[in-house]
Design a protein around this nucleic acid. Structure first.
Lengths: 187, 187
DNA sequence: GTCTATAATATGATAGAC
DNA sequence: GTCTATCATATTATAGAC
């Protein structure tokens, strides 16, 4: 990995662990092994580097989710596989946690990848649920948009509860609870 | 309000808006109108003041929730009232957002009120759902613990999605989606 | 491309006068 | 109880040598 990539990788880790406000250029330099001058040669400053890091994390989240959504199985099976996929539960969601960062939300450039990620994710799940309802797999009374939004929220909230309890199990309970409710709508 | 209370109130606001890492003693002093010396007279430092602020916010969340839980109506009506209660959706949850704060999670004293709040909330909802299942209001197949955890997660995740989209509506969609799923379990 | 030097401002606190 | 002075360290860069 070259210096530029190491800087992005280290920034992604630090944003995940400490958020934007809690991540200093100095810490990024220390973790990446790059010097002061090296960092400012490759990036204009903290916001520029953060944009590269956030965009990369957003892309990765999307591509991982898409792998589950476009995988084999029925709609419910694919959604279940996505919800139950292995996750660094106690570290939280690398994209979702940025919504708590005032300086990220205040900067339209930094904010966009975060907003786009959740819009895409909710839309993609909405489409899957509509497909399941259309092919008779799911009950006609199920609301695709509301259900998709609730499922994404369960994941994001699951991270919050797991961190609060310092227990990955809580995340699993939230997901299982949601799947238990969804099950009643399977035909 | 005396100086001590103004310091706590200002710290609560700043922790809500910017988190622990993003809140400086200087900012607290400016917002509360208290001077440097005044702040260090009433509190030992930033962690001590934050503990007072976090404890207060946790108490308030709990007491507000309890007002809905012990209110009138069936179990489902009370849970619905709690989920749909008016909230500062775009500001996020003043307690839940602290789970993203590495310095809060690393300090057992600061962490405890956060952990206790969600344990209490989930247990309280679990009890209500078990009550509803017991009195025939809810289906026997419903899992109280999993469902309660999922509902709390929907709220916490709803805040995340609403902030990402900069839209309070998204929170409502998540809640409605969850209630839509729960409805199928009403007898 | 990377390094060191320099710097203005912010952070988190202590000391002691009033 | 509140105020101002002071302080060590961290933050977020810029400048210029190599």
């Amino acid at each position: 990995m070259d210096t530029r990539e190491r800087l992005i990788a280290s920034t992604r880790e630090l944003l995940w662990e400490r958020g934007y406000v809690g991540t200093s250029p100095k810490a990024i330099q220390a973790r990446s092994g790059a010097g002061q001058g090296s960092m400012y040669h490759h990036f204009h400053g903290k916001p520029d580097l953060a944009l590269a890091a956030i965009s990369r994390s957003a892309e990765e989240l999307r591509s991982r989710a898409e792998a589950q959504f476009s995988g084999p199985g029925t709609v419910v099976e694919r959604i279940t596989a996505y919800l139950r996929r292995e996750r660094d539960v106690l570290k939280g969601c690398p994209v979702g946690r940025l919504t708590q960062d005032p300086d990220v939300m205040a900067d339209p450039d930094l904010r966009r990848p975060v907003e786009d990620t959740f819009t895409w994710l909710t839309d993609r799940l909405t489409g899957l649920l509509a497909e399941g309802r259309g092919n008779g797999e799911l009950a006609p009374g199920l609301d695709p948009v509301g259900t998709a939004t609730a499922l994404v929220a369960v994941l994001q909230g699951g991270y919050v509860l797991a961190r609060a309890a310092d227990s990955a199990e809580v995340f699993g309970r939230a997901v299982d609870g949601a799947l238990g409710l969804l099950t009643a709508h399977i035909r």
